[in-house]
């Protein structure tokens, strides 16, 4: 009985304090997106759909981007993770 109550308490704790906000959808300013996407795609890091590889490549070449797009890229990576707004 004690074990059952403990397990149910733990399960409810997970449910009670879990983040119920749902998926975060955030995006950058369209003008920045157009400009910076162009710079980022020019790095020739392969297909963006190969997300991890693509992002690692962009990160490795980030100094080739303009300063504004370096900032944009860092923010965009956080937005993609659903972390940033």
């Amino acid at each position: 009985m004690k074990k059952i109550i403990l397990i149910m308490t733990l399960m409810l704790s997970l449910g009670a304090f879990a983040d119920e906000e749902g998926v975060l959808e955030a995006h950058g300013n369209p003008e920045d997106e157009q400009k910076c996407f162009k710079e980022i795609r020019a790095l020739a890091c392969g297909r963006p759909e190969n997300h991890a590889t693509f992002i690692s490549c962009v990160d490795a070449n980030i100094k080739k981007l303009t300063p504004a797009c370096q900032v944009f890229h860092k923010d965009e990576v956080e937005r993609m993770k659903g972390h940033s707004h």
Partner: peptide, 23 residues
């Protein structure tokens, strides 16, 4: 307001959309 490059965001579970006054 946020000093980021995010223009706005929303959550799938919310009717609310948030708009950054920076833009």
């Amino acid at each position: 307001y946020a000093a980021t490059t995010t223009v706005g965001y929303t959550y799938a579970s919310s009717k609310r959309i948030w708009v950054n006054t920076k833009y």
